[in-house]
Amino acid sequence: METKSNNWEPRIVAFFCNWCTYTAADLAGVSRMKYAPNIRVIRLMCSGRLDPQYVMMAFAKGADGVLIGGCHPGDCHYVEGNYKTLRRVTLLERMLHDLGLEKERFRLEWISASEGDKVKKVVNEMVEQVRALGPLDMPGRFADWDKEMEELEAHVNHSQKEIPAHVH
């Protein structure tokens, strides 16, 4: 995908649970529903497997948005994994907000296996919201921040003559 600002496209990483939301996305496919191609799904067995580190990492590696999909409360294939997800996501949402990320960039949705149309709706909605926010581009930001370090490193290494180490 191009990153030049004129034809920038949002990149959404999604973590879908195997039993509900991943299956719903399959259903959307079988039903030939059309939705925005900006989403990349990573399959987890349960949304409870979602380590908050993954969300942070996805943003750090260049995602413009992260979508979590799990079974509806009470419907978890693993009894109550999705409640653990809800607890983690609740705190993570707040922390990401404190870290300056707009709330539209991170979303949790309960989508059951039969809700193919909800996959379509949520993805389209989120892509448009993130598009309106513009690129997050953390890797680009990191590179910008670190540009300030290039000059000095070169300076130190140039000003120093090669002095061979003594042998002890």
């Binding site: 380590d51 908050p52 580190q53 653990k84 809800l86 607890r87 705190l91 993570l92 922390m95």
Partner: peptide, 25 residues
């Protein structure tokens, strides 16, 4: 652990009780 804070968040939130959003919040 790749990200200390995210891991802390994960286990602390896991330790919280509640099933309803308002209780968890």
């Amino acid at each position: 652990v790749h990200d200390h804070g995210a891991k802390i968040l994960s286990y602390l939130a896991s330790t919280a009780a509640g099933k309803e959003q308002k209780d968890i919040t």
